[in-house]
Amino acid sequence: MHEPANRSVRALPMLSNLMEIGSRVQPFSKESREKAPRIRDAKVVHSVCPYCAVGCGLNVYVKNGKVIDIEGNPDSFINHGTLCPKGSATFQYTVNASRTTQVLYRAPYSDHWEVKSSEWALDQIAQRVKKTRDETFVERLDDGRVINQTQGIASLGGATLDIEENYLIKKLFNAGLGIVSIENQARI
């Protein structure tokens, strides 16, 4: 795939050119010489803005395994490097101390969350799905027509998810489990 050069880094030689304006070379401290944008040497990862549906290209800058900045992708014909306030704030959406990063569980009638492991939660969810499905599955209508469905479980969500995720949701829930109420924001 075509990988555009990192423009911010490419713009750097301009600084030394500036220093030569006038009749002689201006004093140029060691500190100035070593100054560099913090995205220098960062890996550029191409992404797409997660908010509205315009589809602005993002450049995600990664250094030492951390996202250090997110900017508009100047090569995208959609946004030419620009972003709106939300798109510009994508960095804070992802790198944010308020994010919940543990699996939380609230037991029936309990007044608090408990921290659990992903494995435990997945096992429990799978058991709940099976139990509810087995109790609510309907194979036929009274007149004999086959419907093979359950209305005991429902799913909502998808417009902020990837198409691959939507595809697996529909495949597992509908084609596998017989859930009919599979919906997303498009209905709203």
């Binding site: 093979n148 359950t150 799913s155 417009a159 995720e165 949701i169 009919v180």
Partner: peptide, 29 residues
């Protein structure tokens, strides 16, 4: 599975209110 009516979001919410829906997945919604 065959649908047997309008199982859209709001109608499902009413079915939930009536206790007919037992389990719910909310992914990014």
């Amino acid at each position: 599975p065959k649908i047997t009516g309008d199982h859209s979001h709001i109608n499902t919410s009413y079915a939930m209110l009536d206790g007919k829906v037992k389990g719910y997945f909310l992914l990014g919604q």
